[in-house]
Design a protein around this nucleic acid. Structure first.
Lengths: 249, 249
DNA sequence: TGACAAACATTGTACAAACATATGAACTTA
DNA sequence: TAAGTTCATATGTTTGTACAATGTTTGTCA
């Protein structure tokens, strides 16, 4: 009894869905497997097509979609593999530490506080948990070597499995990705300005009513499940928030 | 002598480039023509393939690329046409008017001022014009029906050809696109918070030191040539700036 | 051993053919 | 007129075949 794929190989020639769509779905599931993520070549086209009981053209129609999407990478004379961007994946995305480092600023954690708390209603709604559920809350004051300039509050989805005992000195999204296989894929941010409240002024060592950039961030995984809810209060003269957006033509 | 396409139809079966790549290039040039931009159907696949002396499969291989890119749109039983996002193209991209409208807020222009001025150094550098060049500057105070809440300053590239006599009551990017064939493609924005200066406080009818969201925007065309430099000062309690970003996996 | 060549494996390109399905226009009918 | 039917047209799907181009492995020979 030889061990077979964990992904069910099941193409239904009578399904209303076109074959190539079924194959595309199959491939998506297939390439999610760790072995392919780690660089293993997919079965070659001719044999995979035969195995699925379809023609090579149909198979290619399916893989083409994934190649165009940038998920697969084909190399003539070699084979087809999952595309892996150079270096780490969480790089330059969402990471405060990385971003600061690229500007030559060393990030200093002035304080980290982890608690299990009943979150505000908005947060409970975001995670779709019943009212009264306690969530892991992280509060951080960070800045450069000279002074603090941002106060963060984060709530995490209970689905991640964080205990609060983790090492939060490493970049957060690397921790989530490496230790919990949780991948941050989509973020929606809301940015506004406000005057520092007394509470925030104290945290950042500034005067009340100093202008503050407030950024609320909702982070989702690839399945659009909520991962993190985050609010950051930035001392305004120490940060410029940059957004680059390209229009599809 | 019947009139032929303006685009040279010339596929070289001996070229080192694959046929489908040549066809793709040809199509790109073809669909840039006004008639196709305006919605005319491309020749149907069978006849176009015959006309080019290639097979339908090869032609489809080329069009697929453009379809995946979102430039072409195919409709079974109808034909293939250039993809045009619903309504105008500049919709939901950069347009303050459109954005407000989608939230059910009517935009009111409280004041518009157009002048030719020598810009600050930063602006002159952005447009790469010699110091001392006068540029068209637009100042606008806008808001909803009740009150103003944003003060904009824009400088425009002299390359556009604006005279200052245009009708700026229509959405800006539609004006640029329709009348000047200038397409805004990329924008880089810098957002920060500040306290209202006396000048701005006056413009927006608020107290000095009220928190303000300041957004600096650099707008480029598809060739990455600068089009517009814009600064907006938003009354903080009237705007939330939303950024959605997706990570490539 | 080392260099080169041959064989092999794999994707890339191109063609042909047949049938399926959606759309819109023309036609028919109540 | 209004609704349904038919038909022509266009893209969508699928299979099959053949050969080209490229990278890897193996084998040969000096």
């Amino acid at each position: 009894m030889s061990k077979q794929e964990e992904v069910k190989i099941e193409i239904d020639h009578k399904s209303p869905l076109p074959l190539h769509v079924q194959v595309e779905d199959l491939l998506r599931r297939m390439i999610a497997l760790p072995e392919y993520q780690q660089g293993k070549l997919l079965p070659n086209e001719v044999s995979l097509a035969r195995q699925l009981g379809i023609s090579r053209s149909t198979l290619r129609q399916a893989t083409n979609k994934l190649v165009y999407e940038g998920r697969l990478y084909r190399k003539k004379g070699v084979g087809t593999m999952v595309y892996r961007p150079v270096d780490s994946k969480a790089k330059n995305w969402l990471s405060f530490t990385q971003e600061m480092k690229s500007k030559g600023i060393k990030v200093v954690n002035y304080s980290i506080k982890l608690t299990w708390e009943e979150p505000p209603e908005e947060v409970a709604n975001f995670f779709a948990v019943p009212e009264g559920t306690r969530l892991l809350k992280m509060e951080r004051v960070r800045g450069n070597e000279d002074r603090p300039f941002v106060y963060f509050i984060s709530y995490f989805s209970p689905a991640i499995g964080l205990t609060g005992e983790e090492d939060f000195s490493q970049p957060l999204y690397e921790l989530l990705e490496n230790k919990f296989s949780v991948i941050a894929k989509l973020s929606i941010e809301e940015i506004t300005a406000m005057a520092a409240t007394e509470f925030i002024a104290k945290k950042l060592g500034i005067d009340t009513a100093f202008p503050i950039l407030k950024r609320k961030r909702y982070v989702y995984d690839p399945g659009r499940r909520p991962i993190e809810y985050n609010i950051g209060y930035y001392k305004s003269d120490s940060i410029i928030y940059t957004v680059e957006s390209e229009r599809e033509l």
